[in-house]
Amino acid sequence: MTIRSLCITAVAALSMAAGVAVAASYPEAPIVYDKPVKGVIFSHKTHVEKGLACDMCHNRLFEQQAKKAQENKDFVMESLYQGKYCGACHNGSLAFASNTRCATCHIGVKGDARAKGGAKGEAKGHH
């Protein structure tokens, strides 16, 4: 017991020191958009680990509420190319451009099903 709590304390302390603790309350599970197309992933973890702070996106580009952006009519690739939403950084200079590496964020219906623990995408396993 004591060793375990010691470890936890140590990890917490290290995280604090590394400045990760500021983002301690970000959602662990990736967000998967399903509009206007299915299966587009955003991982807080990946972005926080790159050193991005919450206020770099919230609430300037995205509201706090998950998937709120997909209610907007302009939540399409064209907007990203114009620097909106993800396109603010994914413009080819800060991060890879929105019109490249499509399948990095577009995990598709299969990736979505897998993220949700579904078995779709496996053609086998009959009966």
Binding site: V37, G39, C102, A103, H106, I107, G108, V109
Partner: peptide, 9 residues
Amino acid sequence: QHRCIDCER
């Protein structure tokens, strides 16, 4: 192929 995002439309 590089443009496919498996939206399955």
